[in-house]
């Protein structure tokens, strides 16, 4: 010890302090990391690993890319992918545009009205999928539903339509409900970020004689880009995972016309007990979501 210089001793002390800080940090992180590795990372790894196995109630055999090859030939899977893409492509732009429209209308309102509208559009999210679907299923019912009564009264249709039992309409019913449960969060985010737009710039452009639309396009829109990107990405992820609505509303029917990848995955795993095959679908779904999100990042970046 006595041979150490003063600098060495200081260095050793600060090293000891840093070690102690590291130890403390990891102790604070420990519970979170335990839960995270046990209930997110480990099952994720297992999901990928078992997607290469013929994994059912009774068997566990390595089959390489067998499940993936079978998926490529599986017509129901193909149809589920198409339905999922229809849902994503239809809902994402609609949710983005509609929530931005609502947000621009309400962000300057007095606190009470703003909270009222924000709350109303969040209502379907808060109520939860089950109450929402139970009531919509009644609204869509051919005989007892209010929708047929309303449309007949307005003269739009002459005979009652079996909305959920008709392959032509069922997926649009799913989309309508998905839409009502998807716009709550985007509106909250847009209202928050519109409130952060620099007001002196808006006033300056109005004084310069810019129209409302020009002001929006040149002053507000650029500062909304990060929020827009976030909204698009979360809506994409949510739409890709559309499951609860379908399981409760149509169970993928009629004739697979509303089956999505998530629904087919559930059916395969929990009705047919083909875990490996279902996990392969999960992996493909994850890849699709990653691709779409990356695409959105690219598009939004080049817009800049």
């Amino acid at each position: 010890m006595s041979t150490l210089s003063r600098d060495d001793r200081l260095f050793a002390r600060s090293r000891a302090l840093q070690r102690q800080q590291t130890k403390v940090s990891y102790l604070f992180l420990l519970p979170a990391l335990l839960f995270f590795f046990a209930f997110v990372i480990f099952p994720m790894g297992m999901g990928i690993y078992t997607s290469f196995f013929n994994y059912t109630m009774g068997s566990f055999d390595f089959i390489g890319f067998g499940n993936y090859a079978e998926l490529m030939r599986d017509a129901t899977f193909g149809r589920s992918v198409v339905n999922t893409l229809i849902i994503v492509v239809a809902s994402v732009p609609l949710v983005g545009v509609f929530s931005l429209w609502v947000a621009t209308l309400i962000y300057k309102m007095p606190v009470f009205s703003r909270s009222f509208y924000r709350g109303v559009f969040y209502l379907p999210v808060v109520m939860g999928s089950v109450p929402v679907v139970v009531v919509w299923k009644w609204v869509f019912n051919k005989y007892y539903g209010i929708l047929n009564w309303l449309l007949k009264g307005l003269g739009v249709i002459n005979t009652s339509i079996n909305w959920l039992g008709d392959a032509r309409y069922a997926i649009w019913c799913v989309l309508a409900i998905l839409f009502t449960t998807s716009i709550g969060q985007p509106i909250v985010l847009y209202v928050a970020s519109l409130g952060n737009v620099d007001h002196s710039q808006i006033e300056a452009s109005e004084v310069d004689g810019a129209s409302k639309w020009q002001t929006f396009l040149h002053v507000k829109w650029p500062s909304l880009l990060p929020t827009t990107l976030y909204v698009l990405v979360i809506t994409t992820i949510n739409s890709f995972q559309c499951f609860a609505l379908i399981q409760l509303l149509t169970r993928g029917g009629p004739n697979g016309s509303t089956s999505t990848v998530m629904y087919y995955l559930y059916d395969t795993a929990f009705k047919l007990y083909r875990y490996g095959y279902a996990n392969a679908m999960g992996v493909i779904l994850a890849i699709l979501i990653a691709l779409f999100s990356a695409l959105q990042f690219r598009i939004m970046r080049t817009d800049d």
Partner: peptide
């Protein structure tokens, strides 16, 4: 650690559903 946490959030939750049930 932080990157891992953020990255995991971007992945669909349902990919881990079946292994979770087995666990």
């Amino acid at each position: 650690i932080f990157s891992l946490l953020v990255g995991a959030m971007a992945l669909p939750k349902q990919v881990i559903l079946i292994p979770l049930v087995r666990m």
